[in-house]
């Protein structure tokens, strides 16, 4: 009796094969769901959290909001953030030497800020502790999802680079450049 059932099951099973073919056949006729990468990109890159970047200061978009308090470097589980503080004394001295800049700018220059802000993306695990713990909300995730490079060094980012453009444009003015910013 058991074997009779088994034979019946086998024969009935043939129909299940046809049903399987029907499923794949329908999918064959339907649209594709993949994205042809180089021609198109995924549409939700906006919510992706890629490597971190520095936020511009609200009163001066040419400078980062960062006050170089070192919290981010401390909370990072893998030590991928290296911040070097500007030396405020030298800064003031520098601006004084320049003399040409007005008082307001001198005050801004004297503000605390990072001299260098290096971020090693190869060690970053995107946990977001630096973003959460930054007291002045100076760090945010970028949505750079398509990163490629041919050596590890390409992923060690200088986060001041995007501000550096402006600073460099100021460089010709003598006295503004200080040894700290140059380093």
């Amino acid at each position: 009796m058991d074997s009779v059932n088994r034979i019946r099951d086998d024969v009935a099973g043939l129909w299940s094969l046809v049903k399987g073919l029907k499923v794949t056949g329908t999918c064959f006729a339907r649209d594709q769901v993949t994205v042809h990468y180089p021609r198109a990109q995924v549409d939700n890159l906006r919510t992706f959290r890629g490597p971190i970047e520095l936020v511009e200061s609200p009163d001066d978009p040419r400078r980062p909001r960062c006050i170089a308090c070192m919290t981010c470097a401390g909370v990072c589980p893998h030590g991928c953030i290296t911040v070097v503080r500007k030396k405020p004394a030298k800064m003031e001295k520098g601006t004084e030497k320049g003399g040409g800049s007005d008082k307001g700018e001198a005050k801004k220059k004297a503000r605390k800020g990072p001299a260098t802000f290096t971020y090693d993306y190869t060690r970053c695990c995107l946990c977001g502790f630096c973003v959460e713990n930054c007291p002045v909300r100076s760090i945010r995730f970028s949505s750079r999802g398509y990163l490629a490079g041919i050596d590890k060094g390409a992923f060690v980012f200088d986060l001041l680079e995007k501000f550096g453009e402006e600073e460099r444009s100021q460089k010709p003015e003598p006295g503004v450049t200080s040894p700290a910013t140059a380093g």
Binding site: T24, C27, F28, R30, D31, Q32, V33, T34
Partner: peptide
């Protein structure tokens, strides 16, 4: 091609 389209990719 058949494999691709069955799996809904190009």
């Amino acid at each position: 091609k058949v494999a691709g389209h069955v799996q809904r990719r190009p």
